[in-house]
Design a protein around this nucleic acid. Sequence first.
RNA 1: GGGCCUGUAGCUCAGUGGUCAGAGCAGGGGACUCAUAAUCCCUGGGUCGAGGGUUCGAUCCCCUCCAGGCCUACCA
Length: 502
Amino acid sequence: MPQRYYVTTPIYYVTDAPHIGHAYSTVTADALARWHRLLGEDVFFLTGTDEHGLKIMRAAEAKGVTPQALADDNAERYRSAWQLLEISNDDFIRTTDERHHTAVRTFLQAVYDHGDIELRTYEGLYCVACEAYYTEDEAPGGECPIHHRPLELLQEENYFFLLSRYEQRLLDWYEAHPEGVYPDSRRNEVLGFIKGGLQDISISRSSFDWGVTLPWDPKHVAWVWFDALPNYITAAGYGSDDERFRQWWPADTHLVGKDIIRFHAVYWPAMLMAAGLEPPRTVAAHGWLLVGGEKMSKTALNHIAPGDLVEEFGVDAVRHHFLRDVSFGPDGDFSYEGMVARYNSDLANNLGNLLSRVATVVDKKCGGIGPAPQDGSPLQAVAADSLAAATASWARPAPSEALESTWRLIREANAYLEANEPWKAEPGPDVDAVMGDALEALRIVALLASPAMPSACAEIWRRLGLSGRPDDEVLPAAAAWGGYPGGLPVEKGSPLFPRKKV
RNA sequence: GGGCCUGUAGCUCAGUGGUCAGAGCAGGGGACUCAUAAUCCCUGGGUCGAGGGUUCGAUCCCCUCCAGGCCUACCA
């Protein structure tokens, strides 16, 4: 019975067009999904879109369309962006899906029945223009700080989730599950927040209706996070397919940006506990992909569309750059120059060029037929090290380190050729041995790099004369030295990653 | 104000209480020509942010401070 691995991305809010920040999250999750598939695990990889809430309603009004029409359009933009990036999600959930409404209601009812939701009257100073409440501090003189008009004293009935009840249970849970939040700095942040005391949170709105209505009080719709977070259980079969749900829940990895760590590592586990469900095993928070040192935003005009990069560099290069050049956790800075530098050194000069020179020498010295590797090759130990290191790094997860480990094998293969100079030797067993080793190294690289660059690695695989794809193989067995059988036609082909001129 | 994180070679980052503190990239020198003007070899006297302390010994432990970031809470 293979292990299973359930990984999710955040669901993206459909007011915004997909940019490389979304792409970074999604590519990272995709690489994790692909890595675990490569390990032979049963993988469920979920992404999707968050489509409810006041902001969507307003955006739709501004465009003169219905919220659903706006959501449909933008969900499609995400879907196609992910297709372009070769994201291998097994499901794409939308919060407007009927299945999701059903699951959220079941979930809300479970929490309600557990006695953790109660109706309270909220009274406060309200600015009609902002559609928001202000405290006395925020609005001195009872005047809206933005619109400079008098605030109205309004009363609203809201349902509250009694989060404060879960303070100790959350602390106990994290005590018992040190891997619950990754990396440690985020874990500390989460623990600090919980220890600071948890307030009950308002989880319903009655001022608009674009959302999931509460099962026991249809005048209210669920607060966006109480609607968005359960997407992870909806897709796993919560409330609709118990057997499936037992198989997939709890999720192994919720991959999230650092800005939404609290929702995922505090509110969500508490909500799950209240419904009698287990928290996710790990919430892994990455930093932001900054552009020019700033977060991407409409005002900074520094949005970069994933499609533009893919068009210029190709999907594999874009994926590789996100995964290799950004260390998991801290913010990373995206720059065109950095992208070109990484492309040229890693992809064109090292990997691409290795493939070219090997194919050429095999053509000239081995009649175009790839020989088998030799047992005990110096590259054998290097390959084993790369596999071990990459495996450990993907598990953390630290994709940039996993790829660095993989590239060690590429560099060593280049050096090995240099040391043996097969192009100078007469055809024969010695040359065959060296070229077999180089081909084997490339085969293993194609396996190890395939979570990052699925298409390019499949192409390498094909040029080596192998059938199938790297994705069909299972580690660690497939990466054992000696897997290249020899006797296969090796194809030269054009440069896999043509060098970019600066 | 409290809490947390970061500060290591020009750049991006690893790392460990104890042989000369590492990698990639960039830079410098050399070699080679199979290869995408690619590759390979050689090349880093870096106060491991600053100052104290603990220790036989600290970059890694403790304290203080400085700088940057994040979370959180405010003040008359």
